[in-house]
């Protein structure tokens, strides 16, 4: 059975390439029994979402930013 190091490696690679059938199956079996890796898998999607938001300037339009207040007041 897959250990957590290999499971996280596969979940990382799943962000970069389609996993093979066998990889998907063994990953699913591991994740079913391992909440830590389940959270890790969710976080890979969140991480991508965060970096895309960062690239789209979400950090600049976030609240408590004085700059965006100035721009809005204009």
């Amino acid at each position: 059975m897959l250990n957590c190091r290999d499971a996280t490696r596969l979940m990382s690679e799943a962000q970069d390439r389609p996993l093979r059938w066998g990889e998907t199956i063994s990953l699913k079996m591991h994740v079913m029994m391992c909440s830590g890796c389940r959270h890790f898998g969710d976080q890979m999607h969140v991480l991508r979402r965060i970096v895309r938001a960062y690239a789209d300037g979400a950090d600049e339009s976030a609240t408590t930013s004085q700059r965006s207040d100035q721009d809005a007041a204009r």
Partner: peptide
């Protein structure tokens, strides 16, 4: 070191402190 559930990521990205 076990990853835990993350609270409200969509709220985080609207927060300047998070960035």
């Amino acid at each position: 070191e076990q990853p835990k559930a993350w609270m409200e990521p969509e709220t985080a990205i609207k927060n300047a402190q998070f960035w």
